[in-house]
Amino acid sequence: MTDEKNPNGGGEATRRDFIHIAAGSMAAIGGAAVLWPFIDQMNPAADTLALGTTDIALGELTEGQEITVMFRSMPHFVRMRSPGEVEAARETAVSSLPDRLARNRNLDESAPATDENRSAMTAAVSEGVEIEDALRQALLVTSASCTHLGCVPTEGAGDYGAWFCPCHGSHYDTSGRIRRGPAPENLPIPPMTFISATTLRLG
C-alpha cells in the first residue's frame, strides 16, 4: 500500500503535527507530576517529624560534668562547664574563629559566635520559671555530630580542652566552636526551652 508513509512526514506537517505534540507533551507533564509522590515519600513522615522533643533533667548535672542525650535521633552534648572553661571561651575573639556565626537555632542566622550566643543564655524560659543566669551561662548544649562528616567527637581531648574528632582531627573549644581541622562550621545548637528550674527541653 502506498499509504503507509510516516504520518508525521510530508509538507503540510505543522498543523497535523500539533495534535501529536500536544498529546506527547501532556503525557510527559503527567509523567513528571507522578514523580513527586514517589520522591516525597522518602522525606521524613509525619510521625517522624512530630517526635520532636527531648527533656533533660539538669538537677543531676554537676560542674564539669557532661552527658550525651539523643535528640531527633542525633546525639547531643549537654555540658555544665566550669568557670574556667567559660572564661576561656569568652576570651576568644570572634574574629579569630574559622566560623564566626553562632549556628544557634534559638537566634538569628547572622548572630556572631560569641560564647554568650552559644550558651544556654539563648534558651527560651517558660512562663513562671526562674533560673539563675550563672547556670544558663555555664550550660552548653550542642550537637555531637562533627560538622565535617558526622562522627561524634571525643570529650576532653584536642588542643582546646573540649572536643576532638577522632575521624579527621577537628578541634572544638569549650564553646563547641571549630578551631582547627577540616570541619567547616561550629557544632550547631538545637532549639531549647527551660520548662522548669531543673528541666531543659530540646525541640
Binding site: D40, Q41, A45, D47
Partner: peptide
C-alpha cells in the same frame, strides 16, 4: 497503618 496515615503520599502509593 503508618503508611496510610503518616508517610508522605503513603495512602496514595
Amino acid at each position: 497503618e503508618r503508611i496510610d496515615r503518616d508517610v508522605n503520599f503513603g495512602w496514595l502509593i
